[in-house]
Amino acid sequence: MTVRISITVNGRRFDRDVEPRQLLVHFIRDLGGFTGTKIGCDTSQCGSCTVLLDGVAMKSCTCLAVQADGSEVITIEGLAKEGQLHPLQEAFWNKHGLQCGFCTPGMIMASHELLRTNPKPTDDAIRHGLAGNLCRCTGYQNIVRAVREAATAMAK
């Protein structure tokens, strides 16, 4: 069985026939070509696959593409507007909030969710907000600094 679905990824609409078992993360990467979204643990623990679904962060490895039919997805590639990096991307760059970079797209999308729900987080709230994203380089200190800087920049 295939199902006809329509998902908009980063402003581009994709109408595709998919197997119901196809995961949203595979739709985004394989059909959409947006490979910034990573597959890490594949068990909704590491957060590498975090994207925004209708503006709200979720783990795209634990969602069927058919569940997202009619929805709008934003991935890391969709954050920059007209060549201008998002303040979170700027801050992760400035504060060296990454080492190998594999967790970074998910970290930034999860940070986006944190600042959406709590625009002025304490360091504790940042760590709690990013609890579902694992950095195996263990570069958490600079990630927290980056989110703190982005929060300040976005408040201006």
Partner: peptide, 9 residues
């Protein structure tokens, strides 16, 4: 429960 992204779904 889980983490923020998990709690959203």
């Amino acid at each position: 429960v889980g983490d923020p992204a998990v709690r959203n779904r």
